[in-house]
Design a protein around this nucleic acid. Sequence first.
DNA 1: TTGACATATAACCGTATGGTTATATGATTA
DNA 2: TAATCATATAACCATACGGTTATATGTCAA
Lengths: 102, 102
Amino acid sequence: MSKKISVHALTEDELGQIARRFKTLGEPMRLKILQAVCKGPRTVGDIVTATGATQANVSKHLSLLAGAGILTRTKDGQCVYYGMKDQLAVKLCTLVREQLTD
Amino acid sequence: MSKKISVHALTEDELGQIARRFKTLGEPMRLKILQAVCKGPRTVGDIVTATGATQANVSKHLSLLAGAGILTRTKDGQCVYYGMKDQLAVKLCTLVREQLTD
DNA sequence: TTGACATATAACCGTATGGTTATATGATTA
DNA sequence: TAATCATATAACCATACGGTTATATGTCAA
C-alpha cells in the first residue's frame, strides 16, 4: 500500500509546499477567476468582465495561478487564453464548499 | 443528482468563506500543528515541543484554528488539549500532498 | 508605418498577518 | 497565601501581499 490516510511524516519542505498551495487558493478573487475559467479557457478580457476586477489586477492573479501550475496559458494572436490545469484545485473548492452548510 | 462537478454558481459570500478556509490552512506552522494533533488530542505544551515554535506563537495559531472550527479545545485542569475537529482539513492536506510528486 | 487593441509589468500604497517579548490569567501544590 | 506551572493575551515590528494607476510590450488592422 502506498496511500497515507492522515497527515504525517511530512517534511518541513512538503509542509511549505502544501501551505503555499492553500495560500494560493486562499483569495476570493482568485477563486472567482477559477470559477470564470473552469468551464473552459477564457481570455483575459473575458475574465476581467466576469470578475469585475481591474485588468492589471486580474493579470497579476492569472500570472500567479499559472505560475503555480493551476492554470494553463495559451497565446492566440493578441489574445491569451487561461484554462484549468489543476483539476484538484476545483475538487478542493468543491469539498470545502460542501462542508459549508451540509 | 445533487453533486456539482465544478466550481460554479458560488456567491461572493461563499467564495469568501472558501478562501478563508484555504487561507487558514495556508501556513506551514499551522499545518505542522495539525500534524502534531491529528493522531489525537495534545496539550499546548506537547504541541510547542513538537513544532519547536514559541509558546505564544503556538497559542495564537491554536486559537485561530479552533476559532475556525478546525480544532477542538478541551480544558483539563491547567492543561488545554487541542484535537482534530475538521477531518476534511486532513483530507485536503493529503490530497495536495499526493499531487506534489505523483 | 501608424494607430487601436490585448495583455503584462512597474512602482507604489495600505493593510493584514506571522513572529517576538513581556505580561496577564488561571490552576495546582506546598 | 505564596510560589509554580500552563496557557492566553497585549503590544509591537517587519514583511508579505492585494489593489491601484500608469506605462510598457506585443499584435493586429488600416
